[in-house]
Simulated scan of single mutants.
Amino acid sequence: MTAHRIPVGLSTASVYPQTTESAFEFAQELGYDGIELMVWAESVSQDVDAVRSLIDRYQVPVQAVHAPCLLISQRVWGADPIEKLDRTVDAAREVGATTVVVHPPFRWQRKYAEGFAAQVARLEDRTGIVVAVENMFPMRADRFFGRKDRSIERLRRRGGPGIGVSAFAPGYDPTDQGHRHYTLDLSHAATAGADALALAAKMGSRLAHLHLADGRGASVDEHLIPGHGGQPCAEVCRNLASSGFTGQVVLEVNTQDARTRSERAAMLAEALAFARTHLAKPSTALRTPR
């Protein structure tokens, strides 16, 4: 019997500041299985017809669509977050994606937050699209004091993020709400000072989508190439392979330091090789989370 092959996609955010089309080019060139479309300020990312043209041109499918819920995309597709989530799910259907990734509501989005869980469930029932709510992280006080490496050391010494404020309602851990599906982001777990293995275990069979990236515990979200930080990226991948995971793994990494296209390609190729290597090596026994 042939083992199930977990698809590995590339987030369009991974090529920033290059374009959505650049992500399709890299995905085709390097052999990614698909794309996670980040909907944000770039006009192509908001245009379903333009995205379908890219799918046809590069013969790379869109696996998932990330709702425009970043602070920098608060005005994309209007100001109403309820309508924006509806529109994202509709866009996912139109481009053939099976998954929508969404962040928990911000605290100041009170109406959205009050009806968020019910809206997510209703959209899944209506469309069959998986709406996978993503773990986030607090705004840490040490972000404002000293260099990034000092914040990493402080988190290591105290064993957690220390003083912080969550901008999300009811919090940055979506498992407290009992949604049907989750996205696990390993870089966010690092910034939150969370145990990624424990969080994955808490999500259990509801874990539908993995943002594979690394982090060192800095007070800002790093999205390092997996293997370049302190997260158990390899172990998470092997555990997914052991569990019969039927969701998607997407590389959502920061390549802004790349000075040339070839440097960016090398970073994205390394990330893909890491994912494929460890997703092909099931754990013989799942380690108890730290």
Rank of each mutant, 00 (worst) to 15 (best):
T88V: 03
G115H: 07
A117W: 03
Q63L: 11
G146I: 05
H66D: 06
G162D: 10
A121N: 05
V65I: 03
P68L: 00
T98A: 09
W108T: 15
R87F: 01
A91V: 02
F144W: 12
G115Y: 04
V62P: 03
H103W: 02
T98D: 14
F106K: 09
R157Q: 13
L70P: 06
H103C: 04
S73I: 01
R110M: 10
F106P: 07
Q63D: 07
Q59V: 07
A118W: 11
E83N: 01
F145I: 15
A67F: 00
F106R: 12
R126W: 09
R158G: 12
F144Q: 13
V102N: 14
Q109L: 02
R126K: 15
F145D: 12
D125C: 03
R107T: 09
F144G: 12
V130Y: 03
V62S: 04
P81K: 00
I72N: 11
Q109V: 01
P104D: 06
R110N: 09
P68N: 03
Q109S: 11
H66P: 00
H66Y: 02
K148M: 15
D86G: 08
T127C: 08
A97L: 01
T98C: 10
D86A: 06
Q63V: 07
F145E: 14
Q63N: 10
Y112N: 09
G164L: 15
C69D: 14
A141T: 14
S73N: 04
P68H: 00
F116L: 14
G146D: 11
R147G: 11
R75I: 01
L155S: 09
A121L: 05
V131H: 07
V102M: 09
R158M: 11
G128K: 03
R150Q: 13
E134P: 01
V133R: 08
V101I: 15
M139L: 15
P61D: 04
R122A: 15
G115N: 07
V131K: 11
V130D: 09
R157L: 15
G128C: 03
R143C: 13
L155P: 08
F116G: 08
F106G: 08
P161M: 02
